[in-house]
């Protein structure tokens, strides 16, 4: 392998994983050979290693050359950045709100508290906000980076440029229009759910008050929480979808495609839960252990709860499939209307 070949291979290693990598390498090799030939004819020198080194030095470091072929040299580009910032702000606010509510519940449950315990709880609350915000930032950045890489620009116009027509104020709302409070509410609720499931899962349970203090009984087993990363992706995508709706004010083609994608992930999660081990902690044994129910009642209730939740999730899968079909139908109608 000569120097030119080694250089081309080195550039190839640094090229982004895009279609046509071999083609770029082939063209680069051909160009370098052309340039060398040009030098030989203009200088009258013989081709040697020194000439190749001189040429390659001028052409530039392999990583820099490869960088020029990178169509998206940023994690989140200018097309998505305003949306990214907008969602990040709503999400951080929602995280802070969710954790504040969760901490409030915790203080109420544990009261009366000593000053030290109270300060400790407040400290944990602040730390949770910081770590949850960093986690939220990471999740949102990951989803946006994936959209940046894989979503076609033509389909995912996050900020559709359309001429504003004052006459639109006179029109009746169209079925595709979205009221601004709907996506905002959805984003806030989703983030409260994310912060509770990720940072305060102990709050998800059945509560009882015996006149002196609150006791809680966990609702889900570890089998449920093992799918949490997948749920986080679906929730993060849901937030992005609502950000798109907030920005465009209507269900456009890209929003409907995103919605279908999210529903497919939701079906996968529901399927994994239905077919996996018991994820509901309300089992006959657990109910018996609470000493609230006798053995027979615990057995009946526990069995019913286990069967009931699976039936409910089965219905959830069916409902989501229906939703996908409905969204797909609206999408086709919209596409036909756009092309007409």
């Amino acid at each position: 392998m000569n120097l030119i070949d080694r250089y081309v291979t080195e550039v190839g290693k640094n090229l982004p994983l895009l279609k046509g990598r071999a083609d770029i390498e082939k063209e680069l090799r051909s160009t370098l050979e052309d340039m060398l030939e040009d030098r030989i004819s203009t200088t009258g020198r013989m081709r040697d290693e020194a000439m190749e080194i001189e040429l390659l030095k001028e052409y530039g470091a392999p990583d820099k050359v490869a960088e020029t072929y990178n169509p998206t040299p940023y994690l989140i580009g200018p097309r998505l950045f305003p949306m990214f910032i907008m969602i990040l702000k709503i999400v951080i606010a929602a995280v802070a709100l969710g954790l504040t509510i969760a901490t409030g519940i915790q203080i109420m449950k544990q009261s009366p508290m000593t000053v030290v315990e109270l300060l400790k709880t407040i400290g944990e609350w602040l730390l949770n906000i910081v770590s949850a915000s960093i986690g939220a930032f990471g999740n949102i950045a990951l989803v946006f980076a994936l959209i940046e890489r894989f979503a076609p620009v033509s389909e995912f116009k996050m900020d559709e440029e359309k001429e504003w027509d004052p006459a639109s104020l006179m029109k009746e709302p169209e079925p595709d229009d979205v009221k601004p409070w709907e996506p905002i509410l959805a984003i806030v609720v989703t983030f409260i759910v994310i912060s509770i499931f990720n940072f305060n899962p102990q709050l998800i349970g059945i509560y009882s008050f015996d006149g002196e203090k609150w006791t809680s009984f966990p609702l889900f087993t570890d089998a449920f929480f093992r799918w949490l990363p997948l749920m986080n992706i679906a929730w993060a995508a849901e937030i992005i979808l609502n950000g798109m709706l907030l920005r465009s004010g209507r269900w456009n083609v890209s929003a409907r495609l995103t919605s279908i994608g999210i529903k497919v992930v939701q079906i996968a999660i529901l399927w994994l839960l239905v077919t996996g081990p018991a994820f509901l902690a309300i089992t006959p044994e657990a109910l018996k252990a609470t000493e609230i129910f006798d053995a027979d009642s615990a057995q009946t209730l526990g069995t019913m709860a286990q069967a009931g939740i699976r039936i409910a999730l089965g219905l959830g899968i069916f409902g989501t499939v229906v939703e996908i079909i409905k969204t797909g139908y609206k999408l086709i109608k919209q596409k036909l209307a756009l092309s007409a």
């Binding site: 046509g20 770029i24 063209e27 051909s30 160009t31 040009d38 050359v65 020029t68 072929y69 169509p71």
Partner: peptide
């Protein structure tokens, strides 16, 4: 081909860096 275009542009007075021209042609 890329290099002949590069030279032609240079001959006409527009010096273009290879790192700019080749990715541009692909785009």
């Amino acid at each position: 081909y890329g290099y002949s275009l590069l030279k032609q542009l240079a001959d006409l007075g527009l010096e273009v860096d290879q790192g700019t021209l080749y990715p541009l042609l692909r785009r």
